[in-house]
């Protein structure tokens, strides 16, 4: 496995009872690139995500993540919160999962939990208000402010997350994931429910995140997003990989078209139209 792969998925298997949701799936995601995972509904994309981010324990296979400094993690062995804490994989959710009763700023502060816990001396230094803790908190607020600015929510920093419009919530969730300072950002349908203008803004945001040095893995139904920003596309159907390559190449692949036609007419049309 070469160094420019941040994530290598090797023969990933996921079974639920007798159902095989992901069957021996292998692909790689390149460092500082946007990799898209597409496929018809029920292809197993979100299951792959849940394996990578530790919500499911894979039935088999290996998930290897390599940081810039060469440190490697076997994600399938870490599990749960450690994947975010140690391996620095952040994710968003298909159905937004913010902390609705907390402000936008607070959401971003929670994302920096592990760094702040260390700075607060596991709470004890923080309780007595040690200067080191105060500086760390200032820095954390600065980071949060930076990301609020990048996603255009600086003016709504003190509003409850649950009160924000849908598109803002989507962007806030991405900002929150970025506040964990991830090596790999996994986005589960970030463009779902966005209008064309918001979707365009999202493209720019994702490209800028990539250019800042974070690798992105993306599940998306919106083909305009996929075609416009992905560097590499992996196509799944029924739990197996049916194609992969550059966006243009994948789009013209007859197997891909057949999969979408067989699954859902609208999506097939979307795939084909996006090329014309």
């Amino acid at each position: 496995m070469s160094d420019d792969h941040i994530l290598s998925v090797d023969r990933l298997m996921m079974r639920f009872g007798g159902i095989v949701a992901v069957n021996s799936l292998s692909f790689t995601a390149e460092r500082r690139k946007i990799t898209a995972l597409i496929g018809p509904n029920g292809a197993g994309k979100t299951t792959v995500f849940n394996c990578i981010t530790g919500f499911y324990r894979p039935s088999g296979g290996a998930l290897r993540l390599v940081h810039d400094d060469g440190r490697a993690f076997q994600l399938e062995r870490l599990g749960d919160f450690r994947i975010s804490k140690l391996a620095k994989v952040a994710r968003t959710f298909q159905n937004i999962r913010l902390f609705p009763g907390m402000t936008a700023l607070e959401n971003l502060m929670v994302a920096q939990h592990n760094a702040l816990m260390r700075a607060s001396g596991l709470t004890f230094l923080g309780l007595i208000g040690a200067p080191a803790w105060r500086q760390a908190e200032e820095r954390a607020i600065d980071l949060a402010r930076t990301w609020l600015d990048r996603v255009g929510l600086l003016l709504r920093a003190d509003d409850a997350a649950g009160n924000l419009p849908y598109g803002d919530q989507r962007r806030l969730e991405i900002a929150r994931a970025m506040c964990t300072e991830p090596a790999l950002l996994c986005l589960d349908e970030p463009a779902a429910g966005l209008n064309a203008r918001e979707s365009g803004g999202l493209n720019e945001l994702l490209l800028s995140i990539r250019d800042l040095g974070t690798s992105i893995l993306l599940i998306e139904h919106d083909m305009s997003v996929v075609m416009e920003i992905s560097d590499h596309v992996v196509v799944m159907d029924y739990g197996v990989k049916i194609a992969e390559g550059a966006p243009q190449a994948v789009r013209d692949d007859p197997k891909v078209i057949a999969a979408y036609l067989g699954a859902d007419e609208e999506e097939a049309i979307a795939v084909m139209e996006s090329g014309t």
Binding site: F55, F81, K85, F99, P100, M109, V110, T123, T180
Partner: peptide, 23 residues
């Protein structure tokens, strides 16, 4: 403090907390 914010975040959404690396 981070611990208190994590408590409240836990009340709001446990799954999101796990995704953010909170034990």
């Amino acid at each position: 403090l981070p611990i208190g914010r994590a408590w409240e975040a836990l009340r709001e959404d446990e799954v999101a907390c796990r995704a953010l690396g909170i034990n």
